[in-house]
Design a protein around this nucleic acid. Sequence first.
DNA 1: TTGAAAGCGCTAACAC
DNA 2: GTGTTAGCGCTTTCAA
Lengths: 344, 344
Amino acid sequence: MSKHNIRLKDIAEELGLSIPSVSRALNNKPDISEGTKKKVFELAEKLHYQRNEFAINFKNQQSFIIGVIIPQIVHHFFSNVISGIINQADIMGYNIMLFQSNESFESELKGVKTFQKSMIDGLIISLSDNTHDVEHLKYLQAHNVPVILIDKITNAMDAAKIICDDYKGAYYATEHLISLGKTKIAHITGSLNPYTTKERFRGYKTALKDYNLVFTEHLVKKCNLVSTEEGYTTTLTLLAGEIIPDAIFCATDPTAIGAIKAIKEKGFRIPEDIAVIGFSDWNMSSVVDPPLSSVSQPDYEMGKKAIELITQEIQLSRENKPIEYQTYVMETSLVLRESTLGKK
Amino acid sequence: MSKHNIRLKDIAEELGLSIPSVSRALNNKPDISEGTKKKVFELAEKLHYQRNEFAINFKNQQSFIIGVIIPQIVHHFFSNVISGIINQADIMGYNIMLFQSNESFESELKGVKTFQKSMIDGLIISLSDNTHDVEHLKYLQAHNVPVILIDKITNAMDAAKIICDDYKGAYYATEHLISLGKTKIAHITGSLNPYTTKERFRGYKTALKDYNLVFTEHLVKKCNLVSTEEGYTTTLTLLAGEIIPDAIFCATDPTAIGAIKAIKEKGFRIPEDIAVIGFSDWNMSSVVDPPLSSVSQPDYEMGKKAIELITQEIQLSRENKPIEYQTYVMETSLVLRESTLGKK
DNA sequence: TTGAAAGCGCTAACAC
DNA sequence: GTGTTAGCGCTTTCAA
């Protein structure tokens, strides 16, 4: 907001009162007479008085802004997380400042720095795939700015963490394929840095082991971007290999959609020859042909939870009370469609 | 950031200097000796001095925050717009505060109000479908907060506006269907409030007229949410009508995807019996079966442009220079796939 | 119940 | 070159 706005001073002068009196009146303090309070309110109304929040923030050293850094907004999962964050923040009286790292560590660093300058009250962050060092986040914590890690977390720091149960989700997905009688189950994984991908891989391996299926190195392929294109080309390699899989568990839905395209193109039937299951349950997964089975993540709720946690921490931090960090593991669920179940 | 931080005062005292001298040194002002400047810098470094931005913002009455309000983040078009906004804002040295109206006018009003309190330097907004009154935006303008309308705009106020050429895009899409020899072209439109939908409808009608095709009331159906589900059910009604269309131009891609599902289910061939074209070019549109032809919008560039314009306006506004409002119409392009072209 | 004074951290205008 | 003074708008003492 600009200069030339009505200040307490203007009201005070016009009413022949002192500035503190006007302040008291407008803030509904007890030690002010009803008469003057009424006069002040009326004039304030008439002049369209608006508190200068710069002054307030300055005085309180609080911004009511929560910074949010995620790798990519254009991503079904993250845009849902953000949606939950924004709606809940609104309820709690906070504003959201948003930044995307585009999976670059330098960019993430820069984001944290500019947020710091904007005096955020707290930070919710999903780490970039290339973040190995978290000194920038520890620095914030050390300066009483609560940090909450969401989805892409790290064990390199103590903080509240919100994840979904990638391990269990992957385990159930694999188990589902096994229950269909599949034995040569391939896995297309992502860059192995992020915790999430690792956990999905672990769930896959454990399920195989628990059901006495052999783990075959050749049936695991790595995608860096976990994109549709990469899913497509990776699956082509898979289908050209010695062992043709009879099912594929993909670490993300786009990859799975790429896989479906490759499988159809090569003339295999889905799911009879090769069943496919993804992870994330994009809203578009239901419209591909065949509709894709997937592991659904509680994205919106994760965002909501993040705000609940951080507003609590902000409060505790301002009261100089100790904060206990927990890791919240939120449940995934299987959404089964034709890519594994076939036509009804 | 918290209290208990290093202030200029701390440095000044430790160095036996006055506060302004320290300020001058740290801000690289010319009227300070190299010697003291060096001393100050070293101590500041050692003590991890950080400017208190609350004080700076207070002094300058500027936040370097740009507010952004859009109807829905979880929307391919908008998340791309925001992506462009954030990346460009970063370049220009601004932060982005984000809010979604969820297509509710009340929510939009509330968002504007909280942003006002957060002292945003400018607002970029895409109106909710239910916004008929724009007094809240005019109020901002009147208080020297530049407002830029993007995509969902209104003629009810004077401001810089950024849209894509919905009319032309729709015209070309319809023209494309006509060029395929289609004559009974249906149109599934959205809620007719937003300017964009109106323009798409107008483009459709004009194309029909220009090519001497009769406009048939029955072939135009309205969807409120323009969702996949609605596209599906609406298309079913269309296919159950007296005149079966030989092509459908849908106002959005989700609608078109729903239409494809309905058409396939009823046993029609795409595009031989009924061709389908959408609008927006979702990234998933290429993976549906058949891949969907669509009108691609310059979403990311629109966001980028919005930041360029608003930072200029903010600058002009601070210099009390007059601002000329323009409407920027950005070009769409046809992305043709199998849903109109058929298999190669 | 009200006013006077001080201060949040910083910078700009004015002295010396 | 450096220090003194004043002020951004508001709230919170402390006096009266």
